[in-house]
């Protein structure tokens, strides 16, 4: 079920602070975050976040189209390289 609109988008509060800090300082450095559950807000556009996937931080450059998605959607948590002996295993 979709989230009630009256609540507004869910974001972990400290992300806003981190984003502001990154913007006011020297820019283009990866902001490490663990909050995969947070919604991507318009004020995050143009920043690069390192979204944790349980192993390492995957750099995600936030673009306009990503608004409304969650950070976790851009940082896959599973590695599947195909089965052994599978000749034409597709690698993305």
């Amino acid at each position: 079920m979709a989230r009630s609109i009256s609540k507004g988008p869910f974001v972990d509060g400290y992300l806003l602070k981190k984003a502001d800090a990154a913007r006011s300082s020297g820019r283009n450095e990866v902001i490490k975050i663990w909050s995969r559950r947070s919604t991507i807000l318009p004020q995050f556009v143009g920043l690069t976040f390192g979204v944790h996937n349980g192993h390492k931080h995957i750099p995600v450059l936030v673009s306009e189209d990503m608004i409304g998605h969650k950070f976790g959607e851009f940082s896959p948590t599973r590695t599947f390289h195909g089965h052994s002996g599978d000749k034409k295993a597709k690698r993305a």
């Binding site: 673009s63 189209d65 990503m66 998605h69 976790g72 959607e73 851009f74 896959p76 597709k90 993305a92």
Partner: peptide, 16 residues
């Protein structure tokens, strides 16, 4: 196509 170009999880699933 938008989902696929975005590089999000749903897009990856569509690609595969």
């Amino acid at each position: 196509k938008r989902l696929m170009d975005l590089g999000c999880y749903r897009g990856l699933r569509h690609r595969r």
